[in-house]
């Protein structure tokens, strides 16, 4: 059995022998890359309100619950959703604004917030729901983008609880996927793109919601565009 170090050289030698047309250096490679055709749609064609409407429409197609709110009414909107969920044990990322939590904690009897400062997995598993912010919304596919910042939480936080309430600001919504990528000047080390609740169609192509991830996705679209 060959040593892995040898295998590395062996594979790279095979590749170099197989690719005589490879760029000679980094700048030639960058030039060849820059010359690649990109004639697909990379910008928005919709008005702001049509874009937000499309995002909401797509999310609803995924059976997500969507409500609109204003920055001022957000704490009340969160409270209303949590009350409607009938759940009481919620987790939130460490950067969650306090005002998102105080109103609901005061108005809903028995509601308990736990902030994730490195919670054991078992504690997150016990939570009935999670509330986080997001990085971006992509209207074309109804996608919610998380870069797992302090307000979005580590990845497992939005995965184990069965109920996920996501707060998405209207100004974060773009129409197309390329627009999101052009907003990523600094690519994230971690990212999760969520398009509707966890699903499978492995049995006779029948779409079943909620296999392992949250079965219920609720999105509050905060109209900070007006």
């Amino acid at each position: 059995m060959k040593q892995p170090v040898e295998s590395r050289q062996l594979i790279l030698d095979r590749i170099h022998a197989a690719t005589p047309a490879a760029a000679g250096d980094a700048s030639q490679l960058a030039d060849a890359y820059a010359a690649l055709p990109r004639t697909y749609i990379r910008r928005s064609s919709l008005s702001t309100s049509a874009r937000i409407k499309l995002m909401i429409h797509r999310l609803r197609e995924y059976d997500a619950e969507v409500v609109e709110s204003t920055p001022a009414d957000l704490p009340a909107a969160i409270t209303a959703q949590l009350a409607a969920s009938g759940r009481h044990l919620f987790v939130a990322p460490p950067g969650t604004p306090n005002k998102w939590m105080v109103t609901s904690a005061r108005k809903i009897t028995g509601l308990k917030w736990t902030i994730d400062h490195g919670l054991p997995i078992g504690e997150i598993e016990k939570a009935e729901g999670v509330v986080t912010a997001a990085t971006c919304g992509i209207a074309d596919s109804g996608t919610i983008v998380l870069h797992h910042s302090a307000t979005e939480g580590r990845r497992v936080l939005t995965l184990l609880p069965d109920y996920y309430l996501c707060i998405l600001r209207a100004s974060q919504i773009v129409e197309t996927l390329p627009e999101y990528f052009s907003r990523c000047q600094q690519p994230p080390a971690l990212a999760t793109y969520i398009s509707g609740p966890s699903a499978t169609a492995d049995i006779e192509m029948t779409r079943i919601k909620g296999v392992h991830g949250p079965r219920i996705l609720v999105v509050i679209v905060v109209r900070d565009d007006k």
């Binding site: 596919s141 797992h148 990845r155 497992v156 080390a189 793109y193 398009s195």
Partner: peptide, 29 residues
């Protein structure tokens, strides 16, 4: 790639979950 893949594979605009990670991230995963 992501615009083409889900549409071609399962007939969805996007698959429910796409995960991206880079090496290891302290405290996450």
């Amino acid at each position: 790639m992501l615009q083409l893949l889900a549409r071609s594979a399962t007939g969805e605009r996007m698959n429910p979950y796409t995960s991206l990670w880079t090496g290891v991230t302290p405290g996450d995963g």
